[in-house]
Design a binder for these strands. Structure first.
Lengths: 110, 110
DNA sequence: CCATTGTGCAACTAAAAGGTTGCATTAACG
DNA sequence: CGTTAATGCAACCTTTTAGTTGCACAATGG
């Protein structure tokens, strides 16, 4: 009855990481601005540096960003691979839905 | 510094709703099997009916499913509109990333 | 060398999430 | 009309999450 798809288990953590406004903002910043340090990412926000650090860690665990140590700074940059994984997952769902719809339609027609 | 985009605030709850394996499974079931009752969705799972109900409520709050009362049953079905919203959101991010990359590339070339 | 800047680490708190149990309610059915 | 199946509602519990504060530590720049 219940699907135990591996793809679902893989993509759920990615969606969970994306499911926070603050993290989506961080991703948007890193997409536009290239590699940024924690301080830079914190500047202008209304949360503390440590909160930003935690969010970055969540994104890193999901494979959406990666960090490069450079001197005393730690630069973060966007990593598009897992985002593509999420996109494929959504496409698959939409595809199955379309398929179910067309099956239903053809069943109604006969 | 921080983008206060409305699109981000809209799509974050959708991703959050998708960010749970159980809920992704529910969506997969509803995609394939059309409208299903709570009991049907619970059968074969390892959590209680009430837990399933809560997950369905989360999905409904995100606009990913809707319910139809029919007799003593409550049938749930997939609602693809918000999923498309999520897909557009991911596409936008990927697009901004590509754009940033090409800008960087052309800046390096000159 | 000393002040400053950028981070890391740990403890702590408040709230939300995921799940359960128990009981009431509603509708179908012989 | 009584039983049974499908749900709803509410209280409760445990773990996670989002955020904070405080302090230690490393690198940089006069």
């Amino acid at each position: 009855m219940w699907p135990k798809s591996v793809a679902l288990r893989k993509s759920a953590p990615i969606f969970a990481a994306l499911g926070d406004e603050t993290r989506l903002r961080l991703i948007a910043l890193l997409c536009a601005g290239g590699a940024l340090s924690i301080s830079q990412l914190t500047a202008g926000s209304d949360i503390t540096r440590q909160a930003v650090t935690k969010h970055l860690q969540v994104l890193a665990d999901a494979g959406l960003v990666c960090d490069i140590k450079q001197g005393r700074e730690r630069l973060w940059e966007f990593e598009p691979t897992q985002l593509d994984e999420a996109r494929r997952s959504l496409d698959t769902i939409a595809q199955q839905w379309d398929q179910a719809l067309s099956k239903l339609k053809s069943a109604l027609e006969r």
